[in-house]
């Protein structure tokens, strides 16, 4: 679970995020929606420590079972991400697939995946096998340079590279960007399936509100840096005013 409280981010005099609060639950996809410049990417980047947080906090809470005197008890481990270095946040189990995918074009598919696995305790061979099972096309192209992949394949590689480290939290920044509608639909189905099968906390930033709302459980709508709605996805999808003013969705 990730708890964002009163988060503000400034770029010089420009306030990119002001007083943003919401909770992303474990095992659930939380869609973050809004137009260009709403602050979606700034939100993800502040979670990964890539931009400085002016105010507020981001806490990641990890519930797990510990044995106390032979009895299982649930314990909550919590970490404040504000002020942490990007690489330490990543090592904590936060996978971030950046906008534009960020695959390293000069690396082969396998090198990209190896890099993803390096900083975790995952066994490389097992991790690779798991990702090639999930994304067979990557297995076929494992020795190819990432620069030779199509847009959809690059997106898969970026996701597989984050997943191979077995993260607890997955931050996805516009995974549908530049993809054909059919590929986007596939991608969204994959995200949903991964979330359910691995109990991931997914934060999905999307401009494509329609396809994101189809798979998300919860949704947060941002408008010039502020939260205008945070509810379950069905409620947001049914709200005509939100659809019309903030999500650019017209009545069908």
């Amino acid at each position: 679970m990730i708890k964002v409280e009163n988060l503000s981010v400034n770029y010089g005099a420009v306030q990119a995020l002001r007083d943003v609060s919401f909770t992303a639950k474990t095992g659930v996809i939380t869609a973050v929606l809004g137009a260009n410049g709403a602050g979606k990417t700034s939100l993800l980047r502040s979670m990964s420590g890539l931009v400085k947080i002016a105010n507020g906090s981001i806490t990641i809470e990890d519930a797990h079972t510990v044995m106390v005197d032979g009895h299982p008890q649930s314990a909550v481990e919590s970490h404040e991400l504000r002020g942490m270095k990007t690489e330490d946040i990543a090592r904590l189990g936060v996978g971030h697939v950046p906008e534009g995918r960020g695959v390293i074009a000069e690396f082969t598919v396998e090198e990209n995946l190896r890099l993803g696995a390096l900083s975790s305790k995952v066994n490389l061979a097992e991790g690779l096998a798991r990702q090639f099972e999930q994304f067979p096309v990557l297995g076929e192209r494992r020795k190819q340079y990432a620069s030779t992949l199509s847009g959809g394949e690059r997106q898969m590689l970026a996701m597989a590279r984050a997943l191979i480290a077995e993260p607890k939290v997955l931050l996805l920044d516009e995974p549908s960007l530049g993809l054909a509608p059919l590929v986007t639909a596939d991608m969204m189905a994959t995200i949903r399936q991964l979330c359910e099968s691995q109990g991931l906390t997914v934060i999905l930033v999307e401009q494509n509100a329609k396809s994101a709302l189809r798979i998300a459980h919860d949704a947060v709508v941002l408008h010039i840096g502020s939260v205008v709605a945070a509810a379950d996805a069905a409620t947001v999808a049914a709200d005509d005013q939100l659809r019309h003013y903030y999500l650019g969705l017209v009545q069908e």
Binding site: S48, L50, K85, T86, E87, A90, R91, H96, P98, G102, I104, E106, F107, E111, R114, L115, G116, L118, S119, S120, R161, A162, A165
Partner: peptide, 24 residues
């Protein structure tokens, strides 16, 4: 080597490398 992979990643794409836990 793994060190070499980290060295190259840090050089080619420092931000992505950080997001993957590399101490750039």
């Amino acid at each position: 080597t793994n060190i070499g992979l980290r060295l190259r990643a840090a050089a080619l794409a420092p931000e992505v490398a950080r997001l993957l836990g590399v101490r750039v």
